[in-house]
């Protein structure tokens, strides 16, 4: 799972244009939003795009999205559970 978490972090960094942020600077269990990363509603949409493009998973309910994108770990768990 560790390798996948790292891969996911790199994908998130790219999708959200987090210039200069290294994977090990992101705590996989810490909240992504309301953090020093300064993510907003547009980033939530970008994460939905990432899930669909990279893993074929569609997220249509914004409330569901809020739970999935809580942290890198929750995203990873969701992907593992739903990946096609």
């Amino acid at each position: 799972m560790g390798q996948f978490i790292n891969k996911l972090k790199l994908e998130i960094i790219e999708a959200l244009n987090l210039e200069g942020v290294e994977p090990d600077e992101i705590d996989a269990s810490a909240p992504l939003f309301n953090s020093s990363l300064g993510l907003d509603s547009i980033d939530a949409l970008e994460l939905i795009v990432l899930l669909e493009r990279n893993y074929g998973i569609k997220v249509t309910d914004p409330d569901e999205g809020r739970e999935i994108f809580h942290s890198v770990n929750t995203i990873a768990e969701f992907v593992k559970a739903n990946q096609k």
């Binding site: 959200l16 244009n17 987090l18 210039e19 200069g20 942020v21 990363l37 300064g38 993510l39 547009i42």
Partner: peptide, 8 residues
Amino acid sequence: IEPKLLRR
């Protein structure tokens, strides 16, 4: 420009 805005 702070990083969180600069990135976009």
